[in-house]
Amino acid sequence: MTFHNSLIAWYLQNKRDLPWRNTTNPYPIWLSEIMLQQTRVAQGTPYFLSFVEAFPTVFDLANANEEQVLKLWQGLGYYSRARNLHQTAKHIAFDLNGQFPNNYKALLKLKGIGEYTAAAIASFSFNEAVPVVDGNVFRVLARYFDIESDIALATTKKEFTALASELIPKNNPALFNQAIMEFGALQCVPKNPDCSQCIFRNSCAALQKKKVHILPIKSKKLKVKNRFFNYLVAQDEEKQTLIQKRTHKGIWHNLYEFPLIETEKEEGFDYMANNIRNHFFKENTITNILEFNPKSIIHKLSHQHLHIKFWEITIKGKIEKGINKEDLKKYPFPIVIHNFIEKD
């Protein structure tokens, strides 16, 4: 049997029953592909189900306000995906009359859709013979064909795309793309794959050469940046607090947070208390400052680690533009702040 025939036969026997499969409707396929970027299937599936329940069609998503979308996305991370998703839904609903572009090149022009997502939608929805190349595909092809090219390089992406283009059956591209991704997710996993049970155990070059553990090759990531966030959780006599919207570009854009002091390093109580008294809540009298978590919560993002402390500040009188705890829960927050609010 050829490579693609073996792969498809394996897929039909082993594939997972996922809610966005067994459809050619581009809307749920697009949703699932955006949600599963940088996200495991197990984590992304509940979010997908919540989204299609809240927004059954692209028109429903387009007509939602951004805060609704961000609130449903809360905890999934990489929030620019949600903002781009919303903008693209508006474009498809209002400019394209709800019709998704039906080919790879046109799909690429949509905001938030890159080569991988465009290929997935084009093949799954419109049966276009364009290969998907994601981390799973890199791994399967690198091992099967013993390719040592650095997958962090753009030139390598072109190399793998060209190879996948040769392998993909023109009469059944959707099934092949699903199969090779699923094979990488379930069988040809990153660490300690069970090669003894693999359908390619007699033809995989990496297995024959004992190189499975080193392929694919990827150069080291950039150094992670450490940042130190101090959130000021005020409470007045009416048990109201204060929040603000993150409007500047960067992490958590358009999500909400408590007033923030970012420092160069982790600071102690005396430094923070002086800073808070001198620069915050000047319209009110601060009666008490409490370090809620003396040990920082470390929240890891792909390119930075946030060292987060919450400072509880008791205010005499009433805070201007204060918000009560029940209304607080309606706003979209970064998950680390959401968890703090839920525990408090």
Rank of each mutant, 00 (worst) to 15 (best):
F3E: 05
H4V: 09
I8A: 07
A9R: 14
A9P: 01
L12K: 15
Q13G: 09
N14E: 15
R16E: 10
L18R: 12
L18W: 11
P19V: 01
N22Y: 10
T23W: 08
T23S: 13
T24C: 04
N25L: 00
Y27I: 01
P28E: 02
I29E: 04
S32N: 06
S32F: 02
I34G: 08
I34S: 07
I34N: 08
L36C: 15
Q37K: 15
Q37Y: 15
Q38V: 04
V41G: 07
Q43G: 10
Q43D: 13
Q43W: 06
T45W: 06
Y47T: 12
F51E: 00
E53V: 09
A54V: 02
P56G: 07
P56H: 03
P56Q: 07
T57R: 00
D60H: 14
L61D: 05
N65E: 12
E66G: 11
E67T: 11
Q68D: 15
L70Y: 11
K71Y: 12
K71D: 11
L72N: 13
W73S: 07
Y79W: 07
S80R: 12
R81I: 02
A82S: 11
N84D: 04
L85A: 05
A89D: 01
K90G: 01
I92S: 00
F94K: 11
F94S: 01
D95F: 00
D95K: 08
D95W: 00
L96W: 03
L96D: 04
L96T: 06
N97W: 00
N97G: 03
N97I: 01
G98T: 10
Q99D: 10
F100N: 00
P101D: 03
N103K: 13
K105L: 15
K105A: 15
K109C: 12
G112F: 03
I113L: 14
I113A: 04
G114F: 06
G114W: 10
E115S: 15
E115K: 14
Y116G: 11
A119N: 09
A120R: 09
A120Y: 08
A120M: 10
I121L: 01
I121N: 00
A122G: 09
A122H: 05
S125R: 03
S125N: 04
F126W: 03
F126H: 08
